[in-house]
Amino acid sequence: MNESGYYFPVIHNAVGIMTPFLLAAIGGLFTELTGMLNIALEGLMLIGAFFSVIFAASTGSLFLGVLFGIVITMFIALIFGLISLYLKADIFISGLATNLLASGLTVVLAFKIFGNKGVILFKNLPELPSLNIPFLQKIPMFGDIFIGHNIFVYLSWLIVIIAAVVIYKTPFGMRLRGTGYNPRAITALGLKPRNYQLAAILISGFTCGIAGAVLTLNLGAFVPNITSGRGWIALVAIYLGNKNPFGIVIASFVFGFSESFSNYAQGATKIPADFILAFPYIITVVAMIGYSVWKYYKENRKVF
């Protein structure tokens, strides 16, 4: 027991920290399932972070702030999707472009509006509601994991469940997965793979918008490039989670935990924080190589 009131504050914090990873990764899962490598998650998240905090501060409403943030993020995602799918751009390059656009646009606008391109504090931002039930939070593990988080944490769990239902339990989800597995099969049925890919990109815009809002509304401030690679890590979480919504929850927790742990470890252990932060990347590379070795020997496939 300590002053925070949780048995395992490291775990409690990890659950909070993982939320943006989780949201971005769930959106990215949709695009991944349609066979697209969506590296624009990072940029979309940044757009969401910027616009939701600005609108929340100017309207004084968290709900409106997040709503506007999502709308604008989805609009950018739409541009990204249209260029990639209908102007036949290489999705990898247009993804890079989206990231670059996001980092440029947010700073340029911040400078225009606030005359400042450093940290922008929003003082009269409404506080995020959170769930506090003091006697439940004292239950070890359960309390750490489930109690005392802000509303976004619970929203993200809801989104994971909805995503899983959409992906596995609806015709839309089936066609979406079919598009990724074998677009020719989809075409042969007279359906258009591109439509499902665009829908997936818009969904990723939706979740990334929320993911960004989590970052800024939690902090009450906007910092240039506040996402700092979280979109990329979310991408990795998709693979590490084996392209499964619940696997992604676990992968996101691993990343959330390593960040939370490094916050804690910076004071408590001798392992340098950077090494701890590098750990998820290393684990993922090793897992990825292991996976392809396994697959190689299983299928004995020929690599030209």
């Binding site: 609806t170 089936m174 066609r175 997965r177 597995y181 074998n182 099969a185 989809i186 049925l189």
Partner: peptide, 25 residues
């Protein structure tokens, strides 16, 4: 033109799936 990862039934109905509650597969 089959999706190897899907079941036989899923492959057959894909595109004109029967629905439950108007929404779910």
């Amino acid at each position: 033109r089959l999706i190897r990862e899907f079941t036989v039934a899923e492959n057959v109905v894909l595109g004109i799936e029967p629905k439950k509650n108007g929404l779910f597969f």
